[in-house]
């Protein structure tokens, strides 16, 4: 392996309990994020991809519960540690959140507090992690806003979220996430709620930022077109399990798992098909979700029942 691993998840299980049943949202998954690369988790709603990301910052709240596993984080110039071992009140956890690792969300409309100014909210991120004067924090925040493409940043610092458009708010979110120079940026479907043109702008911005800052990105999406543009590594999730991992080229050009194949076939324009097929959830649940085996070839992994595993893969 050419690059080192910044974060590795081992045997992570997360369950949600309601009054009737207990659902495993994440079922015993393993994954590795490589330093300075963009790893994308692809999956439909409810596949457990966001929950996995939340677990990385210990943001899961009842009724959700992490039932087992470890998340080993190896930041640069620091010893690696298991995020899940951090106590609820430990200073290390608060350094991690927003400091070493930060997150941007799907809904830029609601992810910002409606009654505080943009400036207040970005400066809070800085002041939480750095002991610097308010004026310095203000300058830092304004500069970051410029950086993500918001003009007149000094005036706009005093404005409220409702005075910004959706795309602008997402830029604000990105500025807020990056202002403390985290080592991992988690993007939880950051473009899903935006118009297509704005999506393109935000993706371009993320790519541009990625090119200039040394940062590892975990990109969560259901959109394979986005994956094709931005990802280095791809993880396909469904029903709380990882079905397949591999490089973006491998997954998009040569998907092994039937679910991945269906997913790719469902994207118009990526492969020509007369009619789109619906991906059957029942088949995933019953056929290849129940007793899958992990098969490996090189840095590719796929989870499949025995008869479906291609011959060149090792168990």
């Amino acid at each position: 392996m050419s690059t080192s691993t910044i974060l590795s998840i081992r045997n992570l299980s997360i369950s949600f309990k309601n009054e009737i049943s207990e659902q495993l949202a994440v079922n015993n998954i393993n994954l590795d994020m490589k330093r300075s690369q963009t790893t994308a988790i692809v999956g439909e709603s409810g596949s457990g991809k966001s929950v996995t990301a939340y677990a990385m910052m210990q943001l899961i709240q009842p009724p959700g519960k992490i039932t087992s596993g470890e998340i080993i984080f190896s930041p640069a110039q620091q010893d690696s540690f298991d995020i899940l071992q951090l106590n609820d009140n430990s200073p290390a956890l608060y350094d991690l959140r927003g400091g070493l690792m930060s997150m941007i969300f799907q809904e830029p409309m609601t992810a910002l507090s409606p009654v505080h100014t943009i400036g207040n909210q970005i400066m809070e991120a800085i002041l939480t992690h750095q002991a610097i004067p308010k004026q310095a924090a203000f300058d830092l925040a304004a500069a970051m806003l410029e950086r993500v493409g918001i003009q007149n940043s000094r005036e706009r610092m005093h404005q409220y979220p409702f005075e910004f458009s959706g795309g602008m708010r997402q830029r604000v979110m990105i500025a807020m996430a990056l202002v403390c120079q985290p080592q991992i940026l988690i993007c939880d479907e950051p473009t899903t709620a935006l118009d297509v043109t704005i999506q393109a702008e935000i993706l371009a911005l993320l790519k541009e930022l990625k090119a200039t800052i040394d940062i590892s990105v975990l990109f969560i999406t259901h959109d394979l077109a986005v994956v094709a543009q931005i990802a280095d590594q791809v993880i396909v999730m469904n029903q709380g399990r990882i079905l397949e991992t591999g490089s973006v080229r491998q997954i998009l050009n040569d998907p092994i798992h039937p679910y991945s194949q269906g997913l790719i076939a469902a994207v118009p324009g990526m492969k020509r098909q007369p009619r789109l097929d619906a991906i059957s959830n029942d088949s995933t649940r019953h056929n290849y979700g129940v007793h899958p085996l992990i098969a490996i070839k090189g840095d590719r992994e796929v989870a499949l029942p025995m008869p479906l595993i291609p011959a060149e893969y090792q168990l």
Binding site: N18, I20, S21, Q23, L24
Partner: peptide, 11 residues
């Protein structure tokens, strides 16, 4: 999990 009636199946 399959022992229980699924949440969404109930009226």
């Amino acid at each position: 999990m399959s022992d229980h009636p699924l949440y969404e199946d109930l009226s």
